[in-house]
Amino acid sequence: MSIPSEARRVAVRAGLVRGWRETRYSLTDPTDLVWFFAFPVIYAVVLLFMRGSTVPGTDFELGAMVLPSIVGMTIAFGGLAGPANQIAMDREDGTLLRAKATPDGMIGYLVGKTVMFSLGTLVSLMVLAIPAVTVADELRIDGRTALLLPVLFVAGMVATVPMSVALGSLFRSSAQSMLIFLASMVLISVSGIFYPITALPTWLQWVGQAFPFYWLGLGTRSAMLPSDLVTAEIGDSWRTLEMFGVLGIWAVVGFAIAPAVLRRMARRQSGSVVAAARERVMAQGY
């Protein structure tokens, strides 16, 4: 085998090691643990407030409808907000430059980050199972769920991570990448996660339907809710084809622009650029 292909194989394997180690570091870091527990805690609080409320037009517990939605939201949020912030931070502290200074280091870096975000999102989903127990008997968990959830997880990651990487490369500092967190929060409120999207004005429904939060939430609802709850959705349909269509568009656009944007940003990295970023952070505090 030639050196380049052998080297790429080695780099991918090193990337797996990187992903595993970084997940481990993340799970033992207090600040990161807050993120792993954020959604499950929010969900537990939401459940508390939603006691007795039902999905409009049915006698189904609203709290039970929200659980699958939060699963979808966790996937979308994990894929969209995490990598952008990480890339912006890694650029500032020299992690990306280190990858650049290592042969095939960029491959190892990207594989490592993919593994880390996938594992991290999985951990979040597993923690979510704790408050979910209280509504489990309302849900429809069957073979369809077991098949759809992993597919949705992978589709969600593929649709969001490249776009997130591109956005993170465009930001000028890690402080700016906080905008993604804020934007995500706003978008989640119009994505039918905590209340059916059909309750919103039509134009807001369109805004929500442009982003993966809505579609992943719809997908996970279709995987976990009894089929008669489809009446709470737009057009009384789970719109599975449309869902994969929209996620597909996100993936295609993401994969089309992310490598170029990332490469352009990485090319600009040098010792003095990293040092300048550090001085800016020291002087301005962000």
Partner: peptide
Amino acid sequence: LQSWRDHGRWRVRELLDYLSRF
């Protein structure tokens, strides 16, 4: 470089081992 401050969370040996693999 003059100032590296990357990989702050990593353990010394694990970082060196990771980078050596390439």
